[in-house]
Design a protein around this nucleic acid. Structure first.
Length: 265
DNA sequence: AGTACCACCTGACGGC
DNA sequence: TGCCGTCAGGTGGTAC
């Protein structure tokens, strides 16, 4: 599920594959994925020029075109990128395909069609329009503690709220709270500044570690929760069976022994 | 402001 | 075998 580490991995992938290649064709197989832009609009922005630079804000990937606007990609739950030469290698659920003069193509594949593509003037403008909070890796512990200090309710909900801090989704929120030893339903309003700064340390550590392994769950350290995040999974530290609950309507895994129970942080 | 619920969408999976 | 309900979860909308 593309969260910040996945999208950062896509950003780097786009950077060493499709950058500076002249776009010859723009195909949209699922027009409903276009958000606020028409196929013609996309073609006239991309055709005959190239992607020159990438950025990321939270779960959004941006690529600046030679004409100065930015392509915005959001990957929903099942989106990913693929760069390939052989048309037979086109992914099964390609929704947006850029064909380059060098014969290669870049596809955004999205089985469940929850992703989207848009154009914007700049990443900052886009983030402002969408009311996205600061990127989770750029905010810093002080900004993080201030942002979460303004929140009420369950700490996991606050972590996943993209308008508070941008980039953390359901899966990595579970990992961050697991490593911090904080119950996902703990009241964020009851957490002191010190606890929030500590939580941010775990957030950074988790997201950076995940980026280092290109967001591949199988390559995460042995004591990570994510690979065991399934029915009957066991805590990698104490061996106890993981508990599940719902937070913000999302399935939540945690270790009762390490993360306590009830609404305290 | 927070929470609960729905919708979007497809494929995997368990039950019968 | 095959039909059916449920689940997965990012975002965005509604109602309370």
């Amino acid at each position: 599920m593309p969260e910040l580490p996945d999208v950062e991995t896509f950003r780097r992938y786009l950077g060493y594959t499709a950058l500076h290649k002249v776009v010859e064709s723009v195909d949209v197989r699922s027009p409903e994925m276009l958000s606020g832009v028409s196929l013609d609009g996309l073609r006239s922005e991309l055709g005959g020029t190239s992607l020159e630079e990438t950025e990321r804000h939270g779960k959004y990937l941006f690529a600046r075109t030679g004409r100065g606007r930015w392509l915005v990609l959001h990957f929903g739950m099942t989106g990913r990128l693929a760069y390939y030469r052989d048309p037979g290698s086109e992914p099964e659920h390609a929704r947006l395909v850029l064909g380059f003069e060098n014969g290669y193509s870049l596809a955004m594949d999205d089985r469940r069609k929850l992703g989207s593509a848009a154009l914007t003037g700049s990443p900052g403008e886009f983030a402002e329009q969408r009311e996205l909070g600061p990127d989770a890796l750029l905010v810093g512990s002080r900004g993080f503690a201030e942002a979460l200090g303004r929140k009420r309710g369950m700490v996991k909900s606050a972590l996943m709220d993209q308008s508070t801090v941008s980039g953390v989704g359901n899966v990595y929120a579970d990992e961050i709270l697991f490593r911090a030893g904080v119950h996902p339903a703990a009241d964020v309003g009851g957490m002191g500044r010190g606890s929030l700064v500590e939580l941010y340390g775990h957030l950074r550590e988790v997201l950076e570690t995940a980026i280092d392994v290109q967001a591949d769950p199988d390559r995460l350290p042995d004591d990570y929760l994510i690979p065991r995040r399934r029915e009957g999974g066991r805590c990698p530290v104490c061996g106890g069976e993981l508990e599940t609950t719902k937070v913000s309507g999302r399935t939540t895994y945690y270790c009762r022994r390490r993360q306590g129970r009830g609404r305290r942080g």
